[in-house]
Amino acid sequence: MEVTEQEINHLAMLSNFSLEPSEKDALKKDLSGIFKYIGKLDELDTSGVEPTYQVFEMKNVWRADEIINQDADREALLALTKEERDHQIKVPKVL
């Protein structure tokens, strides 16, 4: 399957990448080859087969509703951000 300009732009939008034209062309070529390869799966008959999303038999795993101390507190977490203000994370204005 050949990836079109429009498709690569759509995937870049979904992925939130601002791609340079040159990189776009390279990715178009790469993805075309990869889609061709994974397209091989069409041959396999999977009718009536249940999907597998996880490879264990565990079910109903949940925890008690109790507050416990966390591995990192607010100061430790906010120290990781580039811009902090009044204990909040500063970002460019959201329109």
Partner: peptide, 25 residues
């Protein structure tokens, strides 16, 4: 206070995994 009720999971640090609260179920 802002961000005073935030765990590394809520902050979405790398390698953090959700821990389901049974009471919500």
């Amino acid at each position: 206070e802002p961000n005073s009720c935030v765990s590394p999971v809520d902050y979405a640090l790398p390698g953090m995994l959700p821990r389901l609260n049974g009471e919500a179920v």
